[in-house]
Design a protein around this nucleic acid. Structure first.
Length: 892
RNA sequence: GGGCGUGUAGCUCAGUGGGAGAGCAUCCGCCUUACAAGCGGAGGGUCGCAGGUUCGAACCCUGCCACGCCCACCA
């Protein structure tokens, strides 16, 4: 608030705010955020009497930096938090980061690789040290970026999934689950990434349709099997056929020689086999295929692990030491040599799993791992949403949630990584297995060792809503803020994260009555940010938006508004630079409107005047509707509509009409009327800025402080001047007494008259500044007689003087006729064209309405209001037609 | 293979039974003393296709077409 471009024209002595001619976000944002932090506005108080409203942030990866998806996610959360804070809630937005096990380990391993080292060169301890070191150096860049965005998070409560308290929470719940037999260790087929060298859970595997080659191998004269993974035949321990398949029934129980190995394997009957698919014979490799494992279990077959962790063939023979992709053609070639390939390979598209981290093809692998028995947990997670204890917004997405929790497989939680929470289980020299809680003694002595594996990253994330509040201690934070109010995240991690928080929250937490407590009351899901054509953002396509770039160029508010304005619940959010420019323009519009108001002495002191002009009553009425609308949209997480509603109220109603209508009053001779308008204008802007603050906090705070005169109201309450901020101002409440339908109708008519005259002028090629003499008829009938001066002001019409002759006529719905003296400049052809167009429209209206009103069924069944409205439309159109015809006749 | 969703103006999207809307883009005219990051005006749509229900359908039902997403252990 420095640069003064124009001296205030009629500034009152107490109003000394001076605004630059255009909004400059950079300086304002930095200064405002520092003030918010210093004033303590971001911190929540667990001991306050205010009702709680809490959001835990979806913790970004410690490796991450702010991308446009975060910007969307955070804008939504910040908007919710800021509004609730203004509404008088004790609002807590808790920030933090996720250690992101496999992702972070990969990043650090890549850095090591650049030095020619592997993690094994360092050893476990040194490697983990390196990760912590790296985290300290570059981790948390995103936290600084969150400040640029304006996130009003409580920095005093920042958490990290690997910090001491959260590690304690992890160990506590692991022990509890273990004791409840909900965690077990077993040898199962799991998804194995041969590059990351670790097990993966089902949802860490991405399926794509890949092209493979199907080869048919003859095991015997009668048995032919087809496969896309020929090398796995080395691990076959059976061939399966359908028990009722007439072709093979007689072979069940017999044996066949497995080519290349000399091993004899049984033929088993299993209903899993589809006789209609392929030859109806399936090779069974229990150690490398989940189906085959099941078959093996049912028939007591041995499992032969024929590949190691890196997918290198381990079985003895000519293929030993070959990679799976080298072995595949080699095996096929050897089989062909023996005449075992009956059908040449043919292309075959089938679903193949890939590691979601590195895209390497996943190798199913028999392996000893830890699992969570998800059955009872998933049931509870589903029920909590089914019975409404947790609400998913938009509700349609709950179908996906149910589909997933109702069909959940057990969750493989052990990872063969070094970065993460180490599994708190010790193995003794005599086969003892001891699960150790946080306060238990760790077994010592010869031969005891801890499990080498760490837990899936999502295991600790699943505890986030309560571990961050201090659990397992019974903290004040936990008592005050759990269950959290709403969880905001993208629909893409509904399964990864949301469902698991539900499972663990319900399992670990109890409410006052001892019943399971949900981790959050509402899940508000948003979509993915896309480009202006709805395309996914990708580096290779070059359409990625960097929010920090936008913040630099257009401001944080513009960036936030652009994202919020596209955020329809659960839908993807398209954005583009042009739209961000538009948002920047909107911020500037607010800036200039407030600047205009201050220059003209608008203020917020004292009560609203009791004596109000129709124009004041109109804008105040519109304001009440806007408040109600915005409140409703906020409650429904309809951020696009919040923005749209405020955008139109601010730009159309306030700037384009109210400010223009106020100009003659402010500069007029009636000092009392001018003073009333200054007060109303101040009030409208005050309320508007409050309503916009949750979405665009910086510019609104800056303007509001200028408008309220450095916090006069707050000073009265004895608060220090530096504390003044819109952040802690009250959220507007609609006042039904200010709703004024007659005033709204009146202004609507006024606007129509002005717009029609402007249209006439534009059609006639009259310069905007050119004054035209005109006679106005029918104003009284339309109830706007008092506004004749305003209409003349806005439409630039002079009073008819001597020798006035009407040459152009504007017929406006509502019975108003404006006759203009446009001699010398009237374009008869254009005028006739304009009138003819209006005539056509009126005729169409008449014929439509007449047809409908002549329909007996319509009259009998349509609601009274609809019929009445239609009658009114018909009458209006008929009146219009008469006036248009008269004007046309006059034109000749 | 199963499930969910979408199709409305050039682009992105609102609009769940009674006069087709917004932003951006386009065209015309304006530096009208808050704002050219602006002001005024205009053009533009068989609401995917075909049936059905209804006095009345962008909206409800059926089928088809085209996209998109999620889930999935048929070799």
């Amino acid at each position: 608030m420095t640069d003064l471009s124009q001296p205030p024209r009629k500034a009152r002595p107490t109003q000394s705010a001076e605004l630059a001619a255009a909004y400059q976000p950079g300086e304002v944002e930095q200064r405002r955020y520092a003030q918010w932090v210093a004033a303590g506005h971001l911190n929540a108080d667990a001991k306050s009497d205010k009702p709680p409203f809490a959001i835990v942030i979806p913790p970004p990866n410690v490796t991450g930096s702010l991308h446009v998806g975060h910007a969307l996610d955070h804008t939504i959360q910040d908007s919710l938090i800021r509004r609730k804070r203004m509404q008088g809630f004790e609002a807590l937005w808790l920030p933090g980061m996720d250690h992101a096990g496999i992702a972070t380990q990969n990043v650090v391993e890549r850095k090591l690789a650049a030095e020619g080292l592997s993690r094994h060169d360092l050893g476990r301890e040194k490697f983990v040290e390196r990760v912590w070191q790296w985290k300290a150096e570059s981790g948390g860049a995103i936290l600084g970026q969150m400040k640029r965005l304006g996130d009003s998070v409580d920095w005093s409560r920042e958490r990290f999934t690997m910090d001491e308290g959260l590690s304690r929470a992890v160990q506590t719940i692991f022990k509890k689950l273990y004791d409840d037999d909900l965690i077990y260790r077993a040898e199962r087929i799991i998804n194995w990434c041969p590059r990351c060298l670790t097990a993966l859970s089902d949802i860490e595997v991405e399926h794509t349709d890949d092209e493979g080659e199907l080869v048919s191998i003859r095991y015997s004269d009668e048995i032919v099997v087809a496969t896309t993974r020929a090398e796995t035949m080395l691990g076959d321990t059976a061939v399966a056929v359908h028990p009722d398949d007439e072709r093979y029934k007689h072979l069940i129980g017999t044996e066949v020689e497995l080519p290349l190995t000399g091993r004899r394997i049984p033929i088993v009957g299993d209903a899993h086999v589809d006789p209609a698919f392929g030859t109806g014979c399936v090779k069974v490799t229990p150690a490398h295929d989940p189906n085959d494992f099941e078959i093996g279990q049912r028939h007591g077959l041995p499992s032969i692990t024929m590949m190691d962790e890196r997918a290198i063939i381990t079985v003895h023979g000519p293929f030993q030491g070959l990679d799976r992709y080298e072995a595949r053609p080699a095996v096929v070639a050897a089989l062909r040599e023996q005449g075992r390939i009956v059908a040449e390979k043919r292309p075959y598209v089938h679903a193949v799993g890939h590691c979601s981290r590195c895209k390497t093809t996943v190798e199913p692998r028999l392996s000893l791992q830890w699992f969570v028995n998800t059955g009872p947990l998933a049931k509870a997670a589903g029920d909590a949403v089914r019975d409404g204890r947790t609400r998913i917004e938009p509700a349609e997405l709950s179908k996906r949630y149910f589909a997933w929790v109702d069909n959940m497989h057990d969750w493989c939680i052990s990872r063969q990584l070094w970065w993460g929470h180490r599994i708190p289980v010790w193995y003794g020299p005599d086969g003892e297995v001891v699960c150790v809680g946080p306060d238990d003694e760790i077994p010592t002595g010869e031969g005891w060792r801890q499990d080498e594996d760490v837990l899936d990253t999502w295991f600790s994330s699943a505890l986030w809503p309560f571990s961050t509040l201090g659990w397992p201690e019974q903290t004040a934070d936990l008592a005050k803020f759990y269950p959290t109010s709403v969880l905001v995240t993208g629909y893409d991690i509904l399964f990864f994260w949301v469902a698991r928080m539900m499972m663990f929250g319900l399992y670990a937490m109890k409410d006052k009555d001892g019943r399971s407590a949900v981790p959050f009351e509402t899940v508000a899901l948003h979509g993915m940010v896309r480009d202006q054509f709805g395309k996914k953002m990708s580096k290779s396509f070059g359409n990625v938006v960097d929010p920090l770039d936008w913040i630099d160029r257009f401001g944080a508010d513009a960036t936030r508004f652009t994202l919020a304005r596209g955020a329809n619940p659960g839908s993807d959010v398209p954005v583009s630079e042009e739209w961000c420019q538009g948002s920047r323009n909107f911020c500037n519009k607010l800036w200039n409107a407030t600047r205009f108001a201050l220059i003209n002495g608008a203020h917020t002191d004292g009560d609203l005047p009791t004596e109000l002009s129709p124009i004041d009553r109109w804008i105040l009425s519109r304001l009440q509707h806007t408040i109600t609308e915005v409140d409703g949209y906020f409650e429904e997480y309809e951020f696009a509509k919040v923005c749209d509603s405020l955008f139109h109220f601010a730009w159309d109603d306030v700037c384009d009409w109210y400010v223009e209508l106020a100009k003659p009053v402010l500069t007029g001779d009636d000092q009392a009327a001018a003073e009333r308008t200054r007060r109303v204008l101040g009030h409208v802007l005050d309320q508007l800025l409050r309503l916009l603050h949750p979405v665009i906090p910086f510019v609104t705070d800056e303007l509001w402080c200028a408008l309220v005169g450095s916090g006069a109201a707050e000073r009265k309450q004895g608060k220090a001047e530096g504390d003044t901020s819109l952040m802690v101002a009250a959220w507007p409440a609609a006042d039904p007494a200010l709703i004024d339908d007659p005033a709204e109708a009146e202004l609507e008519t006024l606007q129509r008259v002005v717009t029609e005259v402007r249209r006439f002028r534009a059609d006639q090629g009259l310069k905007p500044g050119q004054r035209v003499a005109a006679a106005l008829d029918g104003l009284a009938g339309a109830g706007i007689a008092a506004h004749e001066p305003l209409i003349r002001f806005l439409a630039r019409l002079d009073a008819p003087g001597d020798g006035f002759a009407a040459t152009g006529t504007v017929a406006v719905a509502g019975g108003v006729t404006v006759s203009l003296d446009t001699r010398g400049s009237i374009d008869v052809a254009a005028e006739r064209a304009r009138l003819t167009k209006d005539r056509t429209a009126a005729e169409k209206e008449i014929s439509q309405a007449t047809a409908k009103l002549g329909n007996e069924g319509f009259l009998a069944k349509a609601p009274e209001q609809v019929v009445a409205k239609l009658r009114e439309r018909l009458a209006t159109a008929q009146a219009d037609l008469t006036r248009i015809d008269a004007a046309l006749a006059q034109l000749g």
